[in-house]
Design a protein around this nucleic acid. Structure first.
Lengths: 106, 106
DNA sequence: ATGCTATTTCGATGAACGTCGAACAAGCCG
DNA sequence: CGGCTTGTTCGACGTTCATCGAAATAGCAT
């Protein structure tokens, strides 16, 4: 994972609409969710959703699998983990991160 | 941390230039780094850097402190942790994340 | 083949972004 | 005060984005 790739994924996640889409997909678990259902659930026009989905797919954050007429979208958990890993890695690379969320050790 | 806020921070981190800036700041640790030094290190025009820095500050990802003539910028580790926490939380909310990065259990 | 459902692609529009140089403001030093 | 260093703001440019409805496509059933 390099900076460019990370930035791309971050940017993909950086739109409220897209983050909602991704979040919904993530919560759907490994079963995924058809595009139509996603559309109903989020209440956004199909073309807009398709556009965002495409963007998410381009960055590797989401995958799709065709099942007859319906297209199942799924969050790519490995990609998510890689991104999270990159961020954490960058964060703790040199020093820092001793702030902790609560108190942390000295 | 709500979706809107997370999206804003994600978007802020979603530009290669800004991610580089942030990364550099993070690696600089608690000491932070003056804007000028950042500029030298990254080789981008001062006005561009200032613009991105401002953006990062607006989302709470970076803080600044004046020391005489120089402005010290610092990564806000708490914000980073909160964001990472949000992402991880969303990721593992329902199911999933059993994929692991290597093989994981059955 | 015809029709149906599910989803994408096209085309357009307004807004926001990233980038830069030039001019400006703030604060220190001699 | 005069000048230097540090960093920001302004104005502009072209690019990319998010959004939508309408039209096109893909696959299946009859």
């Amino acid at each position: 994972m390099n900076v460019e790739q990370a930035a791309k994924q971050l940017e993909a996640l950086g739109s409220p609409t897209r983050l909602e889409v991704y979040r919904t997909l993530v919560r759907a678990g490994h079963a995924g969710m058809p595009v139509g259902r996603l559309q109903e659930k989020l209440g956004i026009p199909a073309s807009t959703l398709s556009h965002h989905l495409h963007r998410l797919i381009l960055t590797g954050l989401v995958t799709q699998e065709r099942q007859a007429t319906t297209l199942i979208s799924r969050a790519n958990y490995e990609a998510m983990n890689a991104l999270l890993g990159f961020m954490a890695d960058e964060c703790c690379a040199d020093a820092a991160c001793e702030t902790g969320t609560t108190d942390a050790a000295a």
